[in-house]
Simulated assay, not measured.
Amino acid sequence: MATVNLPRVDIDKPRYDQSTYVGRAKHFFSITNPLNIFATDKELRNAKHIVDTYRSGGDVGSITIDELWRAKELYDSAFHPDTGEKMFVIGRMSAQVPMNMTITGLMMTFYKSTPAVVFWQWINQSFNAIVNYTNRSGDSPITNKQLATSYILATGGALSTALGLNSLVKKAPPLIGRWVPFAAVASANCINIPMMRLKEIQEGVAVSDANGNKLGYSRRAALDGIMLVTLSRIGMATPGMVIVPIFMDRLEKKGFLARYPWSTAPIQLALIGLCLTFATPMCCALFSQQAAIHVAMLEPDLREKIRKLPDPPDIVYYNKGL
């Protein structure tokens, strides 16, 4: 059966219901699927051909709706949504789990040595910069100055936190020291995300009614969205960087790590990879992409503008970002 004879679906919207947590989780499990980074160039070109042809109303051959969505999943995993250009592989969403697993695992393995702390925090923030640049908006691109400033401040914040806390917890229980990398990553997120979205903080983010009609720009909505994204990013890191250290601390107390010192990094990498495989999509799904805010919470001028409309809404919506 040719796809053109199947019911048309809007492939520019998520496949799953985004008004429910389960639907959002399914969506993010598909776009963060690490297996997508192994797709060959031929497979990616074929997926792009199917998506482009289907969008234009052409005949893409005898494929099912499931195969169409699989092509869209591959397309989204590798091509920029605004420019259509193929993205650098380690900056893709599908690379988040393997890259973060490796960096976080090594960051937590070598957390005691100052040179190692500096090196791995620098590597982590360099990776974040690559991800931010790769996924930059095509409509409102991140400037090189903004990227550089965010990179320097986030790296400085992470290093200050890690090195400062390491010096304070020398006499604390070993588990406390194992949690220092998490504190550094959390602090870097609190710096990096607002810096990358500084334009939204200054000018506001577009808010719309339930029908998608743009009503204006709100700085308050932008701040709320940035807070939600920061919480979800910290949430992604929490299972691997808070729970895994408890398990490793137990192994250390039982003498397992002393008997098998070579096993520390592999065990942490495996456990963190398992945590991130689930935590990444599940935390991305915590808050709806189209977030809601009460009109009463908006800036006075925008609030009054909306209330003067013929049928003013009580709630408006905005894209919170990722």
Rank of each mutant, 00 (worst) to 15 (best):
V180W: 03
F182V: 08
C190N: 09
G157D: 10
A148F: 15
P141N: 04
N132T: 01
A158I: 07
G156E: 07
P174I: 09
T155V: 04
T143I: 02
L168S: 05
A184N: 02
T134G: 03
A188M: 08
T155S: 14
T161D: 06
T161A: 14
N166C: 04
T155Q: 03
V180P: 07
G138T: 05
N189V: 05
R178H: 04
N189H: 15
D139S: 09
A186F: 14
N144H: 10
L147D: 01
D139H: 11
P174Y: 09
G156T: 12
S160M: 15
L159I: 14
I176G: 03
S150Y: 00
P173K: 10
D139V: 11
T143E: 04
A154K: 03
A154H: 07
W179S: 02
N135D: 02
L163Y: 03
G164P: 10
A158D: 06
S150I: 05
I142F: 00
G156H: 03
N166E: 13
G164L: 06
G156Q: 08
N132L: 12
K171L: 08
A183I: 09
G138R: 00
L163I: 15
L175D: 07
W179G: 03
T143L: 01
V180D: 08
P141Q: 06
P174Q: 12
C190G: 14
Y151S: 06
A183P: 04
P181E: 04
A154I: 12
S137Q: 07
G157Y: 04
T134E: 02
P141R: 08
N132Y: 00
A183R: 01
V169I: 13
V185R: 00
A154G: 05
L147S: 07
T143C: 03
Q146P: 00
V180E: 05
A188R: 06
S140L: 12
A162N: 15
S140W: 02
F182W: 14
N132V: 01
G138W: 04
N132S: 13
N189C: 11
I130E: 02
I152C: 11
A184F: 09
N189D: 11
N144I: 08
T134W: 00
L147E: 05
V131R: 01
A186Y: 06
T134N: 01
L168R: 09
S150R: 01
P141L: 01
I130C: 09
T143F: 03
A186I: 10
W179C: 03
K171R: 14
Y133W: 11
S187I: 15
R136V: 06
A162Q: 11
K145H: 12
F182R: 02
Q146Y: 06
T161M: 15
T161Y: 12
T155G: 13
V131P: 00
A184E: 05
K170I: 07
I152V: 15
P181D: 03
V131T: 06
I130T: 12
I152H: 04
L153V: 14
A172N: 10
T134Q: 00
A158F: 05
P141F: 01
D139A: 13
P173C: 13
Q146V: 08
L163K: 05
K145S: 14
A148Y: 11
G156W: 03
D139P: 00
V169L: 09
T155K: 06
G157P: 10
K170Y: 11
P181R: 01
L147W: 02
T155L: 11
A162V: 00
S140G: 02
N144K: 06
Q146G: 11
W179R: 07
A158M: 08
A186D: 05
N166H: 13
K145V: 10
V169F: 13
L175H: 09
G138H: 03
N135L: 09
